[in-house]
């Protein structure tokens, strides 16, 4: 199978993720959509590594995973604490920093 198809898939996943981030209000869902975008990137990296025949892309994919994992830890913690304090996980309700 032509590896380029994986790139199309990655682009599709990224677009779905981005649309989710923009449209949804629930913080958890947004969060999952961000993960989807990250993984779309990972897929693209791995595909490029395969296409170009070097390992750089794969290494960056690992980096991304680590960063994503760290992000999950912090992001979920924030979401949980926000949910606890105001009983809502909607991002529109968290606008305190607005002037």
């Amino acid at each position: 199978m032509n590896p380029v198809n994986y790139l199309y898939l990655a682009a599709l996943l990224f677009t779905i993720g981005a649309a989710g981030v923009l449209i949804r209000r629930n913080a958890i869902v947004i969060f999952m959509c961000v993960e989807l975008m990250l993984n779309a990137c990972n897929l693209a990296f791995v595909t490029f590594a395969r296409l170009h025949g070097n390992l750089d892309g794969q290494i960056i994919a690992f980096f991304t995973m680590v960063v994503a994992a760290a992000e999950v830890v912090i992001g979920l913690a924030i979401i949980v604490s926000i949910f606890r304090s105001r009983h809502s996980a909607s991002v529109d309700d968290a606008g305190l920093l607005k002037l």
Binding site: V21, L22, I23, R25, K98
Partner: peptide
């Protein structure tokens, strides 16, 4: 200009994209 900062994370994300 301040009006642009409406406090909705989505609108910030749109401008980023």
């Amino acid at each position: 200009m301040r009006r642009l900062q409406n406090g909705y994370a989505r609108s910030y994300a749109v401008s980023m994209f």
